[in-house]
Simulated assay, not measured.
Amino acid sequence: MICLCIETATARVGIALSNNGRLLAESLLDAPGGQQNRLLMPELQRLLDQNNLTINQIDLFACATGPGSFTGVRTGIAATQGLALAAGKPCSGVSTLAMLAMNLPHAAWPVCPMLDARKNEVYTALYRTTDRTTQLKQDCVIPPADFLQMLSGPTIFVGDGALRYQELIQQTLGDNALFAPPTHHLLRPSSGCQLAEAAFQNGLSVPPEQLLPNYLRLSEAELSRQQKI
Rank of each mutant, 00 (worst) to 15 (best):
L23E: 13
G68Q: 05
R74P: 00
F61W: 10
G34N: 14
L29N: 13
A125Y: 06
T65I: 15
E121R: 11
D116S: 08
S95L: 04
L83P: 00
A16D: 04
G76V: 11
G68H: 05
D116E: 14
G34E: 15
A79K: 08
T129I: 09
A78C: 10
V111A: 05
S18D: 09
A108C: 11
P42F: 03
Q36Y: 12
K119Q: 14
A31K: 03
K119V: 07
L136N: 06
V73E: 03
P113T: 11
T75V: 15
L29P: 02
M99L: 10
G34D: 08
N103A: 09
Q36H: 14
A117S: 06
F61D: 01
A31H: 03
E43N: 14
R22H: 12
A108P: 05
T130R: 15
N37W: 10
I77G: 07
Q135G: 04
Y127I: 00
R128V: 14
A78S: 14
D131F: 11
Q36M: 06
I55L: 12
C112P: 01
C112L: 07
L104S: 03
V73A: 05
L28Q: 11
L126N: 06
G88F: 07
L126Q: 05
N120I: 12
N52T: 14
L126F: 07
D116Q: 11
L85M: 13
C91G: 01
G82A: 09
N52R: 13
P67V: 09
T75A: 15
D116G: 02
L44Q: 08
T54D: 13
N120P: 08
L60I: 08
I15H: 03
L17A: 01
Q135F: 13
Q45R: 15
R22E: 11
G82S: 06
L17G: 11
P113I: 06
L17C: 02
S69K: 08
Q35W: 13
A79W: 02
Q50P: 11
F61S: 08
I55R: 15
V122Y: 06
P32M: 10
P67K: 07
I55A: 04
T133N: 06
S95A: 05
L53Q: 07
I55P: 00
L29C: 10
T124S: 05
C63A: 12
N120M: 13
A117V: 10
I77W: 07
S18E: 11
R46W: 09
Q50A: 15
P67E: 12
G82H: 05
Y127K: 00
H106I: 12
M102C: 15
L17T: 08
A107R: 02
P42T: 13
P110Y: 03
T124W: 01
L40N: 02
I15R: 07
L136Q: 15
L47V: 05
L100R: 02
L24C: 09
K89P: 00
G82R: 05
E43C: 13
D30A: 12
P113Y: 01
P110C: 05
L100E: 03
L24I: 09
M114I: 07
A86E: 04
V111M: 08
T75D: 09
